[in-house]
Design a protein around this nucleic acid. Structure first.
Lengths: 241, 241
DNA sequence: TATTATTGTCTAATTTTTAGACAATAATAT
DNA sequence: ATATTATTGTCTAAAAATTAGACAATAATA
């Protein structure tokens, strides 16, 4: 972990990203598991270089994990309580990984750096899950999409951060036209409705939902989608950029 | 400025507070002017001690400037662009205050500290302006309430921060019951309506505004207010805590 | 050609918002 | 005392928006 040295990064400030995806009527979050004994999961995150803005830092972190360059991104909250540090986490690691590579791979200075109190800027990202090729970082054992109701227990307050992100997402969804960023470019009205129902965790009336979406005047109606099912074929739509 | 030394504070993170008050149908912001040649104004701000949460830091800063302990407080955004530093500001100061006390009162180390890039957490506060006794800090020449449309030009992006704060305030106002915190404890329906009209900068229909507020079921109706005016006396109301 | 599941859209019912009206009232003027 | 004035409290109708119900259109299969 030699990348943590010195003053390249702003001290004691981190970025944590809640990466939302959507698949099979489920809202998902991309979560890596650390390559250490003991099943530690942690939101994708990182630090801010001295010569990049916080938004740039978030994009860099997101690109590293998703491979995507243009991502819908929203800063939603800063987490700055006392006791936001990795000390308990590293103590556990040291205990569990006595003769492993994990704890030893940190030198003393790095350990001091990473176990100090951190203020974390929370971002959420909305991605088309099909475009993402999840990428482990060098400290990850794996990285996976988890359904939002089946998230693993994560370090520090990361589970709380996801809850906050979802709340912010719901608040913004009907003010800004951001829902589409979770879908493939082309979708049916039913796809869109199911997405909304998933995010808000409640049903919408089909007729009125459709009317409302069309009244927004941001959807282009394309050709029909013939699936081979024994029923009327729905139109495909695309968000007008 | 010996309080800036060492590691007592989190490095490169600041807090900037937009303190909103309301008086005579005008929304006001409390802004200090720095005790330096050249009319420099700057939002009330400060830094975060290692052993306090960011909210505690904001409360400490607010209490120092307003004298008030319990203040409605909302964290609304982080400002983290590149180039957010006090360098240009200090260069001006040094130029203007050659043989003054200003620039000389910083030692080399402090100057280095304060002129680095900063990430700033924006808070806005809502106060009953009549309860506030504005207090200068040791670096202020004066501190004053400014009508929001007549704010002085402030250093860095502080004018932008106020704009963002107002936008956030408007968004929250009809979701949360926070408007009352800008009024004295007891007020008439007209007072309340004028407050809303000031914040949103648009008129509301009197009859419907009153109905809506009463339907919220958070106001206690008290006795009438007899002003001596030749007309029907309005009821006084109090927000039910 | 009938059947089935689903979609697109129309309309009525209901609720909410907006606008208008007017009586009540506390002082002042006559 | 009584009329006048400015403002407040509240009612109701009109308009708009939301919700719910209905049904025809359609693409496959039986």
């Amino acid at each position: 972990m030699q990348f943590l040295n010195g003053q390249d990064y702003i001290q004691q400030v981190s970025i944590d990203c809640v990466i939302f995806g959507y698949q099979k009527k489920q809202l998902k979050v991309l979560v890596p598991k650390l390559a250490l004994k003991g099943d530690f999961s942690s939101l994708p995150g990182g630090f801010i270089l001295q010569n990049e803005s916080i938004d740039q830092a978030a994009r860099r972190i997101l690109q590293a994990r998703t491979g995507l360059k243009d991502i819908y991104l929203e800063q939603f909250r800063v987490f700055g309580d006392l006791g936001r540090n990795n000390m308990p986490f590293f103590e556990q690691i040291v205990g569990l990984n006595q003769e492993q590579q994990g704890a030893e791979s940190f030198n003393r200075k790095e350990l001091e750096w990473i176990t100090r109190r951190f203020i974390s800027i929370g971002y959420y990202a909305l991605v088309d899950i099909h475009q993402v090729v999840p990428q482990k970082s060098e400290i990850d054992q794996s990285i996976e999409w988890y359904t939002i109701n089946e998230l693993p227990s994560m370090i520090m307050d990361h589970n709380q951060i996801v809850d906050d992100a979802l709340q912010s997402l719901r608040l913004s969804l009907d003010q800004k036209l951001i829902g589409f960023t979770l879908l493939p470019e082309i979708f049916t009205m039913k796809d869109l409705q199911e997405l909304y129902e998933t995010i808000y965790d409640k049903p919408f009336a089909r007729n009125n939902f459709q009317k409302k979406m069309l009244e927004l005047d941001v959807l282009d109606r394309l050709e029909k989608k013939f699936t081979g099912a024994a029923n009327k074929a729905p139109y495909l739509y695309r968000f007008r950029k």
